[in-house]
Design a protein around this nucleic acid. Structure first.
Lengths: 293, 293
DNA sequence: GCAGATATCTAT
DNA sequence: ATAGATATCTGC
């Protein structure tokens, strides 16, 4: 079997996920003598856990579609997983990145949200200052080696009570898992990217902001209308954290900035039209009033 | 029992560590059904693991010395653990922070080091821009609530081979632990602080640089001669990452900077003398010189 | 939403 | 040693 348009990672991954029916109920860490240590809810840890649990699924997907599965060993290298074509077809690698964040909830009614509803959340989607600006910076190989960039995102509740009792391997039942209510989505990265950073000093792209995982599953961000190239251009020119000249910080301002450039290769008018269409049909504001802030 | 000068955390912790004789041989993560997932060597994970393994030791120490053990729940709050006096004596809390880094080795002889010797390493010792400059910033309570600040440091080798096989709980023997050769030290923070940052954009204090854990165990950094107050003053005035005016970046420059200030409250001459004494007796350079003789 | 915290690493 | 990467969070 060889790669073809038939390989749809989103579809395949979701199918496997259903088949495997993972519980995500991680109890803790186990040492070689069988002592189990409870986990905290630290996100650094949780993110890695999701990453490791899905390895068998990714391995199976790779095998069945004539890819080899690679994991960069360096800690500062994008992406988390690579599907590398066994036929070595250039420019056809597939990048898979795992992203994680936790839910918090409104305690009282706020701007059209009811008490008890989850707050809108944002995923941090990786640097906008590394491989997007320099094709070999902090990436395995070259940015051009990749055909597709997928995000597997996890959202979860932190257990309120932290358990810190150490138990024997025979007493796993006694442990309260630190994470609950896990939801997962898969989508092409550009379709969930937003127009605002997800961090300051470490210059990460922020996802669209929503409290509904459906919106992410369906990939309804602005660049789903504008296209992957516009996403790449927008974020490779987004002002750096310490830039004195903030040329633009929104898509509207980006269009104006683009319009003033002499060497532009796209029709700004068309982009504006697509963006307006998105605003009307798909923007979070059209889902829920006043998601701004 | 009440707190007294008799409570020496370093001594007590080292004793418990010997008693417990922990193996540090973490095999992996276990879920509630008993499936074990291997760990990677990602430092984010490893650091948390050391943190969790020593919880029982800290609990016992707290109990036996009339402290309660607290762990700040927020992810951006110093310290990792707090010993809080049960008699509520103000200004007498004890901060314990866990720090981790891994060894790497010279492949060929270099500047007096032999091939195969471990490279000198630096621990990142937390921000110099938060609670040191604003007593309530990113700290549980106020900086003045604390009497002592200890660092428990771990240094380890990353396993060369990464194991990614998932096993049953009955097959723990099959797993190769991802970390080997763990060494641990405890020391008062100011005694292991160095004069250079341990990170750029995230503005962390760097420890003294050494490839010998003995040097850290003994707390032989420059501020062990200059004192805790000089450490706090040096690092609360160290130039920020993006500062245009780099007033000083070494202790020698700091002394000159201090000398020019009109409101100084310390005798710069005395500091210089102490520093010179340190340079002669204790600096890593004087260690290296001894090694070469 | 911004700015800068959490911890540590790596390329130059 | 420096500068900026890795991922995500939080106070204002």
């Amino acid at each position: 079997m060889t790669q073809s348009k038939a390989f749809d990672f989103i579809e395949v991954f979701q199918k496997k996920l259903t088949e495997y029916n993972l519980s995500w109920e991680i109890a803790g860490l186990v040492d070689k003598s069988g002592v189990v240590y409870p986990l905290g809810t630290d996100s650094k840890l949780i993110g890695r856990i999701f990453e490791m649990i899905i390895v068998p699924i990714l391995t199976e997907i790779a095998d069945e579609n004539d890819y080899s599965l690679e994991m960069p060993s360096s800690q500062n290298t994008y992406p988390d997983f690579i599907f590398s074509p066994k036929n070595l077809e250039p420019g056809k690698k597939v990048a898979i990145d795992i992203k994680t964040t936790f839910r918090s909830y409104y305690k009282r009614p706020y701007k059209g949200f009811k008490a008890g509803e989850p707050r809108p959340y944002v995923f941090t989607l990786g640097s906008f200052a590394s491989f997007l600006r320099n094709g070999t910076k902090n990436i395995q190989g070259h940015y051009n080696d990749y055909d597709k960039h997928y995000v597997v995102g996890f959202i979860y509740d932190r257990a309120v009570e932290q358990d810190s009792t150490i138990v024997k391997i025979t007493e796993l039942d006694l442990i309260t898992p630190p994470i609950l209510n896990v939801e997962c989505f898969v989508q092409e990265k550009y379709k969930i990217v937003g127009e605002k950073p997800g961090s300051g000093n470490t210059e990460n792209i922020g996802s669209i902001k929503t409290n509904s995982i459906e919106y992410l599953k369906e990939g309804k961000g602005p660049f789903s209308y504008l296209g992957q190239e516009v996403y790449e251009h927008y974020w490779s020119n987004y002002p750096r954290y310490r830039a004195t000249n903030q040329e633009y910080t929104t898509l509207s301002e980006y269009f104006e900035w683009l319009d003033k450039k002499t060497d532009k290769t796209v029709q700004v008018k068309e982009l504006k039209e697509k963006y307006n269409e998105w605003l009307v049909k798909e923007s979070p504001a059209s889902y829920l009033d006043l998601l701004e802030e």
